[in-house]
Amino acid sequence: MQYRNVKKGIFRARPNRFIAHVEVDGAVEVVHVKNTGRCRELLVPGATVYLEESDNPARKTRYDLIAVEKGQLLVNMDAQAPNKVFQEWAEGGGFLPGLTLLRPETTWGSSRFDFYWEAGERRGFVEVKGVTLEEDGHARFPDAPTERGVKHLEELIRCQDEGYEAAVCFVIQMAGMQDFAPNDKTHPAFGAALRRAAASGVTVLAQECEVAPDRLRLAGPVSVRL
């Protein structure tokens, strides 16, 4: 996926989950943060960030915060990006050969999954999770407790009982990770649910990205350590 009109700025503060104060061209702007997660290890005062300028003059905020430098690591933190790059990758044949249908945002049971797919007589659901947390070269999810994430995994297990295939894909919004593992320290219940899902046959994928200030794409698999 490609961004347009990207500018560099310096992060100053985040008054709430939705906005940040960023210095751009010598002036402090109120910008929209495209990730409502905590991201405390990313958004630290003085960090270099990247903003996409909106072409909508009616918007209250002129910029969206889409990426941040964490030392030498560039992290995309656009929460909408993982689904977009997964869809590009899947439609290009990366997820499953012979894919004939890929439908976003499909409800099954009491959950809404990110994608429903068909390939010949095969059919299934995929849930996509964006990963922005890195610890010493290892990717981790989640960065905060996610009861919704646990529910999705439990529903994926039930999908299989009804004859569907099921997968969860962790899109790591950075490059150069050694592996991926659930963040048991922050939310042990999610890690336990992920292990139950894997043991029941749910496919667990982790794909890191090629990241630039103005673009993001899936680059290749990362080993999953459960």
Rank of each mutant, 00 (worst) to 15 (best):
M1Q: 03
R4M: 03
R17T: 09
V22W: 02
D25N: 15
D25F: 12
D25R: 14
V30S: 14
V31T: 12
G37M: 15
G37W: 13
R40C: 02
V49N: 14
E52Y: 00
S54F: 05
S54H: 08
A58D: 10
K60H: 08
Q72E: 15
A81N: 00
P82Y: 09
V85Y: 00
Q87G: 06
L102G: 03
P104V: 06
E105I: 03
E105R: 13
G109W: 09
G109E: 06
S110L: 07
F115G: 00
E118K: 13
A119M: 01
E121D: 14
D136E: 15
R140S: 02
F141L: 02
F141Y: 15
E147K: 13
R148L: 12
G149K: 07
V150M: 07
H152T: 11
L153G: 05
L156V: 10
R158Y: 12
G163Y: 07
E165H: 15
A166W: 10
F170V: 12
F170M: 14
M177S: 06
Q178F: 01
D184E: 14
T186D: 02
T186H: 04
P188Y: 11
R196T: 08
A199I: 06
G201I: 04
V202T: 08
Q207Y: 12
C209H: 01
S223C: 01
V224Q: 00
R225E: 01
